[in-house]
Design a protein around this nucleic acid. Sequence first.
DNA 1: CCCGTATGAATGAAGG
DNA 2: CCTTCATTCATACGGG
Lengths: 180, 180
Amino acid sequence: MEEGLSGRFYIKTSGVRGGCGGGGTKCGRWNPTTEQVKVLTDLFRAGLRTPSTDQIQKISSQLSFYGKIESKNVFYWFQNHKARERQKRRRVSVDNKDTTIHREEKIPSPPTKHFAEVNHVIEPAERVIQTLQLFPLNSFDEPEPGEKFILRAGECREFSHVFGSDFIDHPPLDLRLSFY
Amino acid sequence: MEEGLSGRFYIKTSGVRGGCGGGGTKCGRWNPTTEQVKVLTDLFRAGLRTPSTDQIQKISSQLSFYGKIESKNVFYWFQNHKARERQKRRRVSVDNKDTTIHREEKIPSPPTKHFAEVNHVIEPAERVIQTLQLFPLNSFDEPEPGEKFILRAGECREFSHVFGSDFIDHPPLDLRLSFY
DNA sequence: CCCGTATGAATGAAGG
DNA sequence: CCTTCATTCATACGGG
């Protein structure tokens, strides 16, 4: 979607916050104008993926007409755009792969409060206990200071202890999540 | 990005918590069910901060049992959760240091070079109509499968067709961007 | 209804 | 090229 202007019509040319347009304001980060985005997108659509330094220069120059912009912005733009499209594609494709165990249509869970409702009821349907064997390997970043655990690659294959150690209200199974 | 997102007239779902899927309602954004949130939170508490693509897939699959969900939702969830925790932590520490004062000064990002900012400003004097003759040579990567065009070295010097092919609203010039 | 807050989503910028 | 961080935008909600 188009940045913050998705709906708002306020011109982004003049940065509201972090805007660089204002008199002598230093900008935190480039905020492309719609025109700039458009051109970049078109170029991308046309097939441009990794512009050379030269091209970046030119594009940047051209786009500077629409607003402040630096070469690196163009560089990053393509880099990000490409990477994200790829990632999106990756995720989507996998999502499509029906990895899901859609049993039946989700039962409309009416009660949805933030904290209340701790005890989730297991529907009288067939109950399936599936093991969430995530974390086959490196998966954890160092917890922020103060974190209780530090789980790292290969050290944990399940969250048995984790879930068991806390006041989890899931059925106290390892990282098994009971579905029904 | 382009995203078919109606930036404006979003027809957002009725807002049945976590029940976007039910009844064929179209949802604008994922609304996690309590169970989903719970599991995610637990995983987070357990120390998981940045799940790999793989893990994201698995988690997503598991959670899809509780309701509609895509991998990107999981991805974003962790991204946001981590960021916000950090942000909160930061706020706190700042608060401790200087209470009341809302620091507005945003130290312009440490001069992280990298790009020899060659950005030259186009003099308002000379009116130039520069042709974006990009792509003098290898500039395109193979488009992801599904890409419409495949422009390669030397094949295209301008994007006339590109721009002309769409509903561009720029002044309908080739890839010429008219500067004054 | 309007507003404040929590949080999903997007993306610029880096680092590796 | 990949992954991660910071920031910002857009909503969903609940309260007044």
